[in-house]
């Protein structure tokens, strides 16, 4: 009986519960399973918000390293304040919407058309302090470079004489 529940529980034709979070890598790799179904994902908003027509594109990076494009109709993307890049950890957002394996609306793109977005954690600044050891190594190697150039030039001049 437990086995039967387990098999039924993971059957690919089972309807999805929109409240269940789906890993982004699963959405991308098992697109057939989720095609045109209501899904929810969580991840970091990265890069840029690109306004197009009556909505905007936001790219969401999951904890598994996979990224998916989310089309946010209207001003839904307005809630996202900070986007991930070298200097920032972007807002952690939860997106619910309809997943399209090959969206007919967006030229066959794999994407989610969002119904709702909520910011779970506001983005933060990533500190990139200068590492003292690296500064010392770069100075030491610079001294080495200058010395080697000078020595080489001296040897060449001596040989030319």
């Amino acid at each position: 009986m437990r086995l039967l529940i387990l098999i039924v529980g993971v059957h690919p034709l089972m309807p999805l519960n929109a409240e269940d979070l789906i890993p982004i890598a699963d959405l991308v790799n098992k697109g057939r399973r989720y095609d045109q179904q209501k899904v929810s994902i969580e991840g970091e908003a990265v890069g840029d918000i690109m306004v197009r027509g009556n909505g905007s594109w936001v790219n969401v990076l999951g904890p598994d390293g996979a990224v998916i494009g989310v089309f946010c109709p209207g001003d839904l993307a307005g809630q996202v304040r900070r986007l991930g890049d070298y200097f920032h950890r972007g807002d952690m957002i939860r997106v619910s919407g309809t997943m399209y394996r090959f969206s007919p609306l967006f030229g066959g793109e794999t994407c989610i058309v969002a119904d709702g977005i909520s910011v779970l954690n506001a983005g933060t600044t990533i500190a990139h302090p200068l590492a003292p050891l690296r500064i010392m190594v770069s100075i030491a190697t610079a001294i080495g470079s200058i010395t080697s150039v000078l020595l080489y030039r001296r040897v060449i001049r001596r040989e030319e004489r």
Partner: peptide, 29 residues
């Protein structure tokens, strides 16, 4: 304004230049 990666590239530059000089020196004559 990315200060942190600058030493990485300085180290790379110096390593490349020193290797170049070393090979030039070995190839003298």
């Amino acid at each position: 304004g990315e200060w942190s990666p600058i030493p990485d590239f300085i180290i790379g530059f110096n390593a490349c230049l020193m290797s170049g000089i070393l090979f030039l020196a070995l190839g003298r004559g």
